[in-house]
Structure formats: structure tokens, C-alpha cells
């Protein structure tokens, strides 16, 4: 079986037209492979571009060259050359991403936000909501908040809602950007536990953890991005 994530020779730079076309190199020749059931932690100094690499994998950043193959429906899609429509399909079925910030339409209840990705996969709404309730309960979001929009929640609560949403469907590929930041010890433990469960189910995971202790619990390998960076914040 081919690895769900295959990155080869990816180069990325930002061209800042607003500042006279200044070019900021981000990556030069990054290659990595993540197998199913493998969880890789990106390491490197703060500002080296760990988040940028996740965004490249998710298609939010556009690579200048190279390939990023993501396993999708018994096949693989090269995110670098795929059409927006293909990338949307990959994101819907195969590629989960938990960013550091929760961005949602105000007013939509938390439960719906968490269950939404699973419904988009075609799951019955009740089944998706059941799974969402399970996750919210495990992540200690008080039940009386489930009907409210998370917009007004605390940072930690928003982060946990974000994680629940990202882990609600079983994505074959998961990208996690500091999922444990701003969480207390108890919740951090739960999140790491959930990540391990996802990996054991066969997800290929790329994540960023600030704390080495978290990496040791939730990741099987580490990947130092420093050799490939232009040393610019991403």
C-alpha cells in the first residue's frame, strides 16, 4: 500500500508584491513520507515554517514546485497540481486539518460544527451528532454549551471544539497544528489519547507540538524541517 502522504522536493517562497516584489524563501526541496498508522511530529525552531508545511499539505499555501501526494479514494492526488475542486474532494473525504484557530460562522451551534464534516461525508445526521456528542463529552465541553456558538467560548474551549471537529470523521490523513496548546493537563491527555486512537485506526498524521512530552506520547517519528527552510517565519 502506498503511503498516504508523499512529499517530494517541494519548494515554496512568498513573493511580496506590496513590497517591491521581495521574495521570501520558505522551503527548498522538502521531501517526506508518512505511512498509514505513522504519526510524524514536525520539529524545528519557532518560526522555521512548521505551520507553513502543514498549510502546503492542506493546499492553503501553493507550492512553487515538487509534488504533494495525498492518498484519496484508493488513489492519490497531487495537491500541488490538483484543481480546487479536486482538493475540496480530498479535504472532504481524506484530509483533516486542525488549525490553531477556530473559524466558524457565528450562531451555528457547537454540536453542528463538530458533526458537520461527518455529515458532509454522507453520514446520517443522527450518527454524526452521536459521534460529535461523544467527542465533546470526552473533551469536557459542558453539555449546556453544545447548543451555543463557540464564538464566545474561551480559547481552550474553542481549541477543543476545533479538535473534536477535526477528529469527528476518521480521516486517513490528519494535520494537527499545536492541538495541545492552551490546554490544561487533563484535556491535553485526552487530546493525545484521541490522536493515538486515530493513528491506531490507521491515520497518517503530521503534527506540531510545542512540548516534547506531547510528541513522545502522540508521535511515532520526528521530522526536522530546519535543513529545508529559508529561515523565514511562515
Amino acid at each position: 500500500m502506498t503511503a498516504p502522504i508523499r512529499v517530494s522536493d517541494v519548494t515554496k517562497k512568498f513573493t511580496l508584491h506590496m513590497q517591491g516584489g521581495v521574495e521570501l524563501p520558505v522551503f527548498d526541496g522538502v521531501s517526506m513520507t508518512v505511512k498509514a498508522g505513522q504519526a510524524i511530529a514536525l520539529t524545528g525552531p519557532s518560526g522555521a515554517g512548521k505551520s507553513s508545511l502543514l498549510r502546503l499539505l492542506y493546499g492553503t499555501y501553493k507550492a512553487d514546485s515538487g509534488c504533494i501526494h495525498i492518498g484519496h479514494k484508493d488513489d492519490a492526488v497531487d495537491i500541488v497540481t490538483a484543481s480546487p475542486r479536486q482538493i475540496l474532494d480530498v479535504r472532504r473525504y481524506s484530509l483533516g486539518y486542525v488549525s490553531q484557530f477556530l473559524r466558524v460562522i457565528p450562531r451555528v451551534p457547537t454540536l453542528e460544527i463538530v458533526a458537520e464534516p461527518m455529515m458532509q461525508l454522507g453520514a446520517a445526521p443522527e450518527k454524526a451528532r452521536h459521534r460529535a456528542r461523544e467527542l465533546l463529552k470526552r473533551l469536557r465541553i459542558p453539555e449546556n454549551l453544545w447548543g451555543l456558538s463557540p464564538v464566545t467560548f474561551s480559547g481552550g474551549e474553542q481549541q477543543r471544539v476545533n479538535i473534536a471537529r477535526g477528529l469527528c470523521p476518521d480521516y486517513p490523513v490528519l494535520l494537527l497544528d499545536e492541538p495541545t496548546a492552551s490546554l490544561d493537563a487533563e484535556n491535553r491527555g485526552t487530546v493525545l489519547e484521541l490522536i493515538n486512537e486515530a493513528r491506531e485506526k490507521g491515520s497518517a498524521i503530521v503534527s506540531i507540538f510545542h512540548a516534547k512530552a506531547d510528541r513522545d506520547i502522540a508521535c511515532t517519528d520526528e521530522f526536522d524541517i530546519q535543513p529545508f527552510t529559508g529561515g523565514v517565519c511562515g
Binding site: G59, T60, L88
Partner: peptide, 22 residues
């Protein structure tokens, strides 16, 4: 410029898109 919504907003390529986003 045309593309995924998050890509155009977070990594705008064209000078005008960059101006618009910033």
C-alpha cells in the same frame, strides 16, 4: 486570481489579491 478560498486569502499570488487581502 482564482483558487481555493483559503488559498487565495492566505497565500494570494497576484499583486492585486495581495493588496486586497492586506
Amino acid at each position: 486570481e482564482t483558487g481555493l478560498a483559503d488559498q487565495v486569502l492566505d497565500d494570494p499570488q497576484a499583486p492585486y489579491s495581495q493588496l486586497l487581502v492586506s
